[in-house]
């Protein structure tokens, strides 16, 4: 077990969205543009980092039976911080992410890392794990966001790049496009995995 490994496992091997199928609600809901995807990813990464830090710090004093409520309160505290900070500094982003900012509380990636990793490992490892997982989550959202914004709107980060003759496939911005894009990505990663094993 090395720090390097803990950091990079979230990128591909244990990518929360593509490999573990966690945190799917925000991955579908806010990936309609790259800006939203990166904003959500950054917010979730901050919460993940902070909650992993606190949870690993208090892990010896937490009674086993009530650990989940304690983790949830820790996470909810940081989500409230993010919520208020975002409303103050990036009101546009806060508005377009809507209720998915407070819903970071029930993002299973964060509770999942607290339960599976931070509750069992020391502070340093937990920080690297949280950061790596957060970046992996952001990457996954961004990849889906790039495909959806490019096909559905002909833009990237709000800048038109597909040329004037491009007819946007509206479906990709609408809810069905999220399901289809993510489904195909999950299939693609399964396929790559089975090829690599051969």
């Amino acid at each position: 077990m090395s720090l390097f490994k803990e950091f990079f496992k979230g990128f591909y091997d244990e990518n929360p969205v593509f490999r573990l199928a966690l945190g799917l609600c925000p991955a579908l809901a806010v990936s309609n543009s790259v800006q939203n995807a990166v904003g959500m990813g950054a917010a979730a990464t901050f919460v993940l980092l902070c909650s992993n830090f606190i949870v690993s710090l208090i892990r010896k004093g937490v009674p086993k039976k009530i650990r989940i409520p304690i983790y949830i309160v820790v996470i909810a505290t940081f989500v409230t911080i993010v919520d208020l900070a975002m409303a103050g500094f990036a009101p546009d982003l806060h508005k377009s992410l809507g209720i998915f900012v407070p819903l970071i509380v029930v993002n299973c990636v964060i509770l999942g890392r607290a339960e599976a990793f931070a509750g069992k490992n020391n502070v340093l490892y937990s920080l690297f794990d949280g950061l790596g997982m957060g970046i992996g989550f952001t990457l996954a959202l961004t990849v889906v966001g790039v495909v959806r914004e490019l096909l559905g709107d002909g833009k990237l980060w709000g800048i038109p790049i597909m040329g004037a003759n491009f007819e946007p496939v509206l479906l990709f911005i609408l809810p069905p496009g999220a399901f289809l894009t993510l489904g195909l990505f999950l299939g693609l990663f399964n396929w790559i995995d089975s090829r690599m094993k051969k």
Partner: peptide, 23 residues
């Protein structure tokens, strides 16, 4: 169904089609 698409991926494709219907 192709092996890579079995399980969760195909469920997402189905959800996409249902979502089109609900649209």
């Amino acid at each position: 169904i192709p092996n890579a698409m079995r399980g969760i991926p195909i469920a997402f494709i189905m959800a996409g089609l249902m979502s089109i219907a609900f649209l």
